[in-house]
Design a protein around this nucleic acid. Structure first.
Lengths: 252, 252
DNA sequence: CAATCTTTGTGCACGCGTTCACAAAGACAT
DNA sequence: ATGTCTTTGTGAACGCGTGCACAAAGATTG
């Protein structure tokens, strides 16, 4: 979701709910796979299974785009691929810059999933002069000093931030000032941006923490179950108490 | 969100809503920053701003954990850090394996954000024999053949999949069979897992596609506005038609 | 100790998203 | 042409999440 600031309150951007927009790429991926296998049509049930969602949800999602299905038959794969691509704006070319060419930035530059969807990595930018001129994924790294020029020369409107947290806000400000209006942020910071700029964030550590929460809960429930019927179903990993209120940093 | 399959329907895991759980790491990050600056207490208003959320939402989130604040004063930073850490299960050690040591896998192995939160990269696994034995981020890469043994020897319950899409489901099945119950999936595929296994996915390409959608919409609105009052407010980037129905792959 | 001021904790209302369930629509067979 | 069968598209109900607004609680001051 976008950062708190701008906070478009889940505004349905053009009749299409935000939740639906977030699923369109999922459908597109599944459809592309079907297309490559030359499958001509697909039912909502099949496609939903392939995309990992409920079929009723899928049909409702598609209903926001229009009536593209045929009752009794299903959806024309090729046609739907085209319609969703168009809706997402993937029929045009999106030049993208990646700022911060560390491990993650380099991985992103090499990531094939971008190019296959109309996204073109127009430039790589890093603050380290030692990197300048060196090629990553066949693209030369340029210095941060030239950021504004690069954005303008290439007509870039989407920027990817893969810098350390400390540099992210500053980079963000410069990107926005230079004309970027959409930002994908990998740095673990909250970015504040002016109205009209969209920010989406990907935080690797946050995802793991959410998993840890559920993992802990599962271990807790299991321990509770074992307390009733103590059987050696589980491997011997040192199961911490479920809610054992371990005294640690308990301040005054 | 977890994959469609298991589909715990936003079950509030222990009274704590899923949406709240997803924000706890955000609060924790902001609090940690305050803690490092030795700030003793913080109000819901300040903390909310730092975390990029609404202050009412933050207070409600905390109310699910208990009454940890003091009216008229705010929250004790250190105490809250501890409570949230405990709630998320970060007071214990979580050994993690990363499967698929390509560009992304290597970047994840090098990512500092894991270690700082109780996550320990216990092993790196790849199917390429050429990588076996080579060290990435100081950790030797092991071969997929030993996956089951590695999981069991280290008591791993969280796995990270960074393989190509084609290998993901197979790796997932083996991880689950070996005892892993939480998976973070970076491969662009829908994973199906048995009941009781949590899956979270991060898809870089999907995030960009969502941004592209909003970007296109912005360009469209702007073009519409210019049609009424045509002024040269904008840079000259080749603005594609807003909804120009570009004929491309229009099948029968 | 009383008055005032700050900030939490939460009851309540509203809106978005999800799901069910079914009528309408078209394909296909006879 | 008529009937049957499949599958879409959607009205309606429900539940979760959000945000407002305020009462309760405690700190602080005189």
């Amino acid at each position: 979701m976008a950062t708190g600031r701008t906070h478009r309150p889940a505004t349905r951007s053009r009749g299409i709910p935000e939740a639906t927009v977030a699923r369109l790429p999922l459908y597109l991926r599944a459809l592309t796979a079907l297309s490559e296998r030359s499958v001509p049509t697909v039912s909502s049930e099949e496609l939903a299974a392939a995309a990992g969602v409920n079929s009723a949800k899928l049909r409702k999602d598609f209903s926001y785009l229009g009536s593209y299905g045929t009752r009794g038959v299903g959806y024309d794969v090729e046609y739907l691929v085209y319609q969703i691509s168009r809706e997402l704006g993937l029929t045009q070319d999106w030049p993208v810059v990646i700022v911060g060419i560390g491990n993650l930035g380099a991985a992103l530059a090499n990531y094939g999933g971008f190019a296959s969807r109309g996204f073109r990595v127009a430039a790589l930018i890093d603050a380290d002069p030692g990197l300048t001129g060196r090629a990553v994924a066949g693209i030369p790294v340029q210095h941060t000093d030239d950021l504004e020029r690069i954005i303008q020369d290439n007509g870039v409107s989407i920027g990817v931030i893969a810098t350390p947290a400390g540099a992210a806000q500053q980079v963000c400000d410069r990107l926005v000032a230079a004309g970027v209006t959409s930002i994908l942020n990998f740095a673990p910071t909250v970015l504040s941006v002016p109205e009209g700029v969209d920010v989406r964030k990907v935080d690797l550590s946050i995802e793991l923490q959410i998993l840890a929460f559920h993992e802990q809960r599962k271990a807790g429930e299991e321990a509770a179950a074992e307390a009733v019927a103590p059987a050696a179903t589980r491997k011997d990993s040192a199961d911490q108490g479920p809610d054992g209120d371990v005294p640690a940093v308990m301040p005054a």
